[in-house]
Design a protein around this nucleic acid. Structure first.
Lengths: 204, 204, 204, 204
DNA sequence: GATGAATGAGTTTTCATTCAT
DNA sequence: AATGAATGAAAACTCATTCAT
């Protein structure tokens, strides 16, 4: 039962299956992928998958869970108090923009696609990703906004807008916008300046 | 063949089918909806749908086409030259934010979900919606940005960021963010200020 | 909807499917028969069956329903008051013993087999077959038993015993007892005498 | 190979497995029970079962074999010559009626259900249970019947009828007939009288 | 002998699409 | 043009059985 070696084997096999699922889902999408596709990719029999996951949707949940863990793990923000505002904003932007690009853009596309349609997934995202992330940065933003004379409601909406901007840019990227594809790495800097000063001249 | 009355009948029947499809797709999603669901909702026989549309995905394309037309039709911007910048930005934001909310949030969710996964749909969106919209506003933005000493590449990325912000906020809305649900109508004003001045005090 | 010709076609197709199911079920048993077997026998496609029946168990229910109707329809007893006791008993025995033999012994085997294991089917049999049959004859038996000085409880148990005898003999028949196979047609007479007099000499 | 201790261990393990199978079969039925269900109940691994039994049906055969042994073992009738007829009949009835009730009604249901459908099982029942039992009591009945002026064929059919009555009553019991459930223990007496005298007044 | 992970054949069921009426 | 019954390919999932450890 709690044999640690057994558990490791089981965990490894689960990872192997999720790896395979991630590849084929990213390639063909969730609905167009069959369990057989996943099994073939993983080099195992169809039925074996059901020894480790309850159903096809459960595979997607497993993938989501891995993404969630990977996102939140890296998201440990350094103490905001020790950062100046531009640095903080830049870090806030940098991590998700780069993390998504690196390995799982295609997969994020699939998960998001299903999230738009699957209530279970949506709620998990809401409660396990979005809320924690917002809770992490909102205080800092609100504090800064207050100093700038920006009201709380307004500030909170702006936090959503910035989060939405990241999400939306990612979407545009996955929709093959050439400009974004070519200049993605400039975004953190560009956006930091934009967020701090808008379209107003910065230097004057 | 080109009998105008015939054509009108055909167009009307197509609309009837798309109306039905829009309702049931929005309700159950694309993959969970059967042709029979659409036919029942439209009050016609299953087979009749195939007299007007080639396939089930073709229904989604038809819906997309209607959304595209509706978005672009309303998007006829007044002569930018006659507007001051804040008004222009506010109009640029107002229309999509309100249009989406009004009647077809649910449907947008479905179309977007499929767009993330369906190459055909994605390309159409890219070439028939996004590009034209950007082409419409980009010159104005670039012009203004140049006046503010913002480089062209930077400006173009910012245009994407603003478009992405709209898209991302819409997504967050469909993911049931309470703050957005409750204060959606404030967004055009809040965002206009934010876009023009960022988090910097506005008055000074 | 209520087009009478349509309804007849539907009813006919249902019968065709049930006929096929009856044959293959009787041959291979319920669990060993696949939907494909039924479809092939009926000369139709697999999917067509699902246009007329919800599930594989629903086929068995349909067969049960036909058996029920056929059993009860013929079971209209003539007015007991006009019959002497031996004639009444003989008629009570004759019908089920002969009906079962005639066409659906094999099928009865299958239905009974499933009834032993399937609660839904068991309850239907209990409420739709057994209870009505008992209710039909019990009064007559009780009346006669009272004349013979037999108590009510005893008489009611005897009615069950006689019904059980019919059921049990049928079972023994389906289990291939040669003596029963060869002399089935004698049973009504033999049993009538036995029921009236037991093993006691009848003439004395 | 013929190590007696080994053999005892093997026999014990077989019994353990059959005990488990009996419980889960009785609960869920043969087809609805998986090998894993049996293994879990027995507290062993799935594969272990196949060290002792060839297949899933072989488990049922094993259970049948145990039932057969238990039925025949107790069925050693005392010398009929020393019994008067009513006592003999009562004993003939008492044993199966009570044995079935006591512990294995549920299991009997399952075995019978499968017997109706499985030729192998049916033949074993026919040759190893029914024939021996009939052979044991038939001579006595025939002898008594001859004294009463009942022909041999008639008498043999009546023996089947009585056996069928026991079987049929058991079935009715498993089909949840309340009267039988409540008064099962009266049956041996009621049936003895009924078999000897039928519905005719007994005393006169 | 015991284990239990792996297997993959086999089954039910769905549903987009066709086509005779 | 409209119908809707028929089709059958496809897919998720189950589970008896095997066999390497």
């Amino acid at each position: 039962m709690t044999d640690p070696i057994q558990e490791q084997l089981i965990a490894a096999r689960k990872q192997q299956i999720l790896d395979a699922a991630a590849v084929v889902f990213a390639d063909k999408g969730f609905h167009s992928t069959t369990i057989r596709d996943v099994a073939k990719r993983a080099g195992i029999a169809d039925g074996t998958i059901y020894n480790y996951f309850d159903s096809k949707p459960a595979l997607l949940m497993g993938i989501f869970e891995r993404m969630r863990a990977s996102i939140l793990q890296d998201a440990v923000l350094p103490d905001p108090a020790s950062l100046d505002v531009p640095t903080f904003v830049r870090m806030f932007l940098y991590h998700p923009l780069m993390a998504l690009k690196q390995d799982n853009f295609g997969l994020f596309r699939i998960v998001l696609s299903e999230m738009l349609v699957n209530d279970d997934l949506r709620q998990r995202y809401q409660s396990q990703v979005l809320q924690p992330m917002l809770a992490g940065v909102e205080p800092y933003f609100l504090d800064y906004a207050a100093q700038q004379g920006i009201g709380e409601l307004e500030a909170r909406l702006i936090v959503r807008a910035i989060a939405g901007m990241i999400l939306g840019l990612t979407l545009e990227y996955t929709l093959h916008d050439d400009l974004l594809t070519d200049h993605w790495e400039h975004l953190p800097d560009v956006l930091t300046t934009f967020i701090l000063h808008g379209l107003t001249p910065r230097t004057a």
